[in-house]
């Protein structure tokens, strides 16, 4: 098996080169040197990895909800592939966060075999999640999902392309692998966006409405959070404000091929003085996590 998204590879213990760090499921960073580069603050690196990891985890979760619900079998399979890619990125990023600063990992009962990346995914409350609000909303119809994937993947591709030069070798390798995946996600979303925009009257109406749903939360991706500022300063991360212009050009291209006007809906404001990166989320995240974490939390010393 050389499927680079096959989640079963780990069951066979085959040697496989397609994973950034092998595919040993027991420890995603097994054998990887996680020593911090000079000038990199572990706590800042961990906080930054949580942001990128939570974006991937939460968006993956939403996409996975399309399984058995997509418009056709081919699309069911495509969305699952994208969700699997993002889940893989999330796993590596959360593991990197835990290795960079073990204090971010929630405490579990003594003797719990739950690995740190799972403790981060399943035992943090919503206020500790650092994803942008864009990725956490309910799926809505296929147009909303398409619009969200377009905005998210365009941003993430621009980000990962730059992150390949991170001074943290682990982050750089995660980014290098992710670039290939996310380029595909962006292409998928852009093609559907144009198809729906130029399909039928109904699909065009829905595509516009879908863009209006997600557009107000788009801006948050480019607002520099103090953690991101530190990440850029120390050379392990990227200041997202610097991505806005490039991303905008690409989105404009897709909109124009689709004959779509740029949405004019106003941006969603912060909550108090914070937003997703500060743990200030929409109501949807709490509900999502209640479902996502229910089994894991019922068995804090369980083995899976």
């Amino acid at each position: 098996m050389t499927d680079h998204t096959s989640a079963y590879d780990g069951l066979l213990g085959d040697d496989s080169a397609q994973w950034a760090f092998g595919q040993d499921f027991e420890d995603p960073l097994a054998g990887v040197d996680t020593t911090l580069a000079a000038g990199v603050d572990g706590a800042a690196l961990a906080a930054y990895c949580l942001m990128l990891g939570d974006d991937a985890l939460v968006h993956s979760h939403r996409l996975s909800q399309w399984a058995s619900n997509a418009p056709d079998l081919e699309e069911d399979i495509a969305l699952a592939n994208i969700a699997l890619d993002l889940l893989g990125q999330a796993r590596l990023l959360l593991a990197r966060a835990a290795a960079a600063d073990p204090s971010v990992v929630p405490a579990l009962p003594a003797g719990s075999p739950v690995p740190p990346e799972d403790a981060l995914a399943f035992f943090r409350d919503d206020a500790d999640f650092r994803n942008v609000r864009l990725v956490e909303g309910e799926n809505g119809d296929f147009a909303v999902t398409t619009a969200r994937l377009l905005l998210f993947s365009t941003h993430r591709l621009a980000l990962l392309e730059r992150l390949r030069d991170s001074v943290d070798p682990v982050l750089a390798a995660i980014a290098a692998k992710g670039v290939k995946e996310v380029a595909y996600h962006r292409d998928h979303a852009a093609r559907w966006c144009v198809t729906l925009a130029r399909g039928t009257e109904e699909s065009r109406r829905r595509m516009r409405a879908g863009l209006d749903v997600v557009w107000p939360l788009h801006h948050e991706l480019f607002r520099t959070h103090p953690v991101e500022a530190t990440a850029a300063e120390q050379g392990f991360g990227v200041d997202p404000a610097g991505l806005a212009a490039d991303v905008d050009v690409l989105l404009e291209q897709v909109l124009s091929v689709g004959g779509l006007d740029r949405p004019t809906v106003p941006p969603t404001g912060p909550l108090g003085r914070g937003a997703g990166r500060d743990g200030r989320h929409t109501e949807a995240l709490g509900r999502m996590l209640a479902e996502m974490q229910v089994v894991a939390r019922a068995h804090p010393t369980g083995r899976w």
């Binding site: 680079h4 081919e74 399979i77 495509a78 592939n81 290939k180 292409d187």
Partner: peptide, 23 residues
């Protein structure tokens, strides 16, 4: 085999369904 609306979608779907995007 698979279904697709046009040639480009067919290549795209084929990659997802039959090669899992193996490069």
């Amino acid at each position: 085999s698979l279904h697709a609306a046009d040639d480009r979608m067919a290549v795209h779907n084929a990659r997802d369904v039959y090669t899992r995007r193996n490069e």
